[in-house]
Design a binder for these strands. Structure first.
Length: 464
DNA sequence: CGTTCCACACCAATAAGTAA
DNA sequence: TTACTTATTGGTGTGGAACG
């Protein structure tokens, strides 16, 4: 029987990442698969409405019938990709074969994001699937740092201890090995450099019947210190995995009793791993009954759709994307080099209270080489379309600082892309495209030519 | 519809390294 | 030893989405 590969993700699916996932899957499972140029195509139904499923083409395998991608949302701490290998569309009760976490952040940029902040996801996913393969996929945009920091080596060793596979990054066989004992882990962490004065160092203190781990969890009047939630989850899960079954206590956390709430991610992890908060009572966790659900609400459904249609059905391309809101984004310069965007025009002025220094960034920037146009796109839900139109006025900074210097001969236009409602017409001229909740593709009165060409080619593809 | 949570990356402080 | 530079650490800033 031939099965399909289902890729469920919260993000915009990227060709190179899909390529890597497919390569990994075929290699691990000894499924021969020839991968050509990957394209990601929206599937239209008989009425030419979007079915909210994308199909991946550009591969050949006699054990994978088709590859589908669907947009989902996690209920809490969620990995970037779930992979299912089965005939039918995944349901909540189905078990994925892989959970994959992807990051663009190297050790050189931040230890928090490179290792620690992601780690809690691998601890959390164990609540739902015991048999899943866990993968940390680095898709670095910049060159990997030559020597690794102690924090990075420690974090990587912990991940390996938990059985997480590391991909896309050179591993050093001397340093990057799983811990074998509780004491080895403790000695490694405690011999690391101390942080500056005023910071709470993460230290591990073991006695006969108790291990204490110090670390701050308090932030902005709540238990929301993400980097340390990750670090402490990772350390505690590793200690449990290595066989420590006695008391495990977090000290120096800075929390009060009122911060311990059952629906908090770390409270759930603490309950599962039997971790105590020094000086505080634990409360009953409210663990979510499902790990994910199909996305039917978010504005990103609209911008991801238009992005993929343009990428796969026109010669146009994206210069910048920001579908996830706070994910790291790179602007592509005229020489094709990705550069990170500055958040402020003048950092000093911003710090002194001048909010005008914030560089407002669009959700998506597309380039149309045929028409010599660059399109700045603001994505919104249909009901918030007025806000989207309002935000179009904020793009002077990015256009002057980045777009015009790099693409001086291009005309710059601004437009809003919407998702939602059951409307089949757009009145506002500022709106270029609407994907409604029934999958209707609605072009605006003054839609950019790139959108019109993309939609036309998509329709032709499915109707020829 | 204001508040809380979450995810991402940035960055001040300072220990460690290095040249004189 | 001292003055300066580089590397490393964990706390902080920010904005979107979920929550109640």
């Amino acid at each position: 029987m031939t099965k399909n590969l289902w890729i469920l993700t919260e993000e915009r699916p990227k060709r190179d990442v899909i390529h890597n996932i497919l390569f990994k899957f075929s290699k691990d499972n000894e499924i021969p698969c020839f991968i050509d140029t990957i394209r990601i195509l929206p599937i239209l139904n008989n009425n030419n409405d979007f079915s909210f499923t994308y199909e991946v083409v550009g591969f050949k395998s006699n054990k994978i019938n088709q590859i589908f991608i669907k947009t989902i949302s996690g209920q809490s701490s969620f990995v970037d990709f779930l992979i299912f290998y089965q005939e039918n569309e995944p349901k909540i009760e189905d078990t994925p074969v892989y959970g994959i976490e992807e990051t663009k952040t190297d050790d050189a940029e931040s230890r928090n994001t490179g290792i620690f902040q992601r780690a809690s996801k691998f601890v959390y996913i164990d609540f739902f699937y015991t048999d899943i393969k866990k993968v940390m996929l680095y898709s670095l945009q910049i060159k990997q740092k030559e020597s690794q920091t102690q924090t990075n080596i420690f974090g990587t060793k912990c991940l390996l201890t938990l059985g997480v596979e590391i991909m896309g990054k050179k591993l050093d066989p001397k340093n990057h090995t799983p811990f074998k004992t509780v004491d080895e882990l403790i000695d490694f962490k405690n011999s690391m450099r101390r942080p500056p004065k005023g910071n709470v160092p993460i230290l591990i203190n073991k006695t006969n019947d108790k291990i204490e781990v110090s670390g701050r969890l308090f932030k902005s009047d709540s238990l929301s210190h993400d980097p340390n939630i990750g670090a402490l989850s990772l350390i505690c899960a590793s200690l449990r995995k290595l066989g420590w079954d006695k008391k495990l206590v977090i000290t120096e956390h800075g929390l009060s009793q009122r911060h311990i709430k059952g629906n908090n991610k770390f409270v759930q992890i603490a309950s599962k791993l039997n971790i105590e908060f020094d000086g505080l009572q634990r409360v009953a966790p409210k663990i979510k009954d499902s790990y994910w659900h199909y996305e039917k609400e978010g504005e990103k459904l609209g911008t991801i759709f238009i992005h993929l249609v343009v990428e796969n059905f026109t010669k146009g391309n994206s210069l910048f994307e920001n579908h996830a809101g706070c994910e790291k984004g790179y602007f592509i310069t005229k020489s094709g080099e990705p550069i990170p965007l500055e958040k402020y025009q003048d950092r000093e002025k911003y710090k002194n209270g001048d909010k005008n220094q914030i560089v407002h960034i669009p959700d998506l920037i597309l380039i149309d080489f045929d028409k010599s146009e660059i399109i700045n796109i603001e994505g919104k839900k249909y009901k918030f379309r007025a806000n989207g139109i309002e935000e179009l006025n904020n793009f002077d900074a990015i256009e002057n600082s980045y777009i015009k210097p790099n693409y001086p001969k291009f005309k710059i236009i601004r437009t809003v892309v919407l998702y939602g409602s059951t409307e089949e017409k757009i009145i506002e001229i500022e709106v270029g495209f609407l994907l409604n909740e029934n999958g209707k593709l609605v072009l605006g009165i003054k839609a950019p030519d790139l959108f019109k060409v993309a939609i036309k080619n998509l329709l032709d593809y499915w109707n020829s």
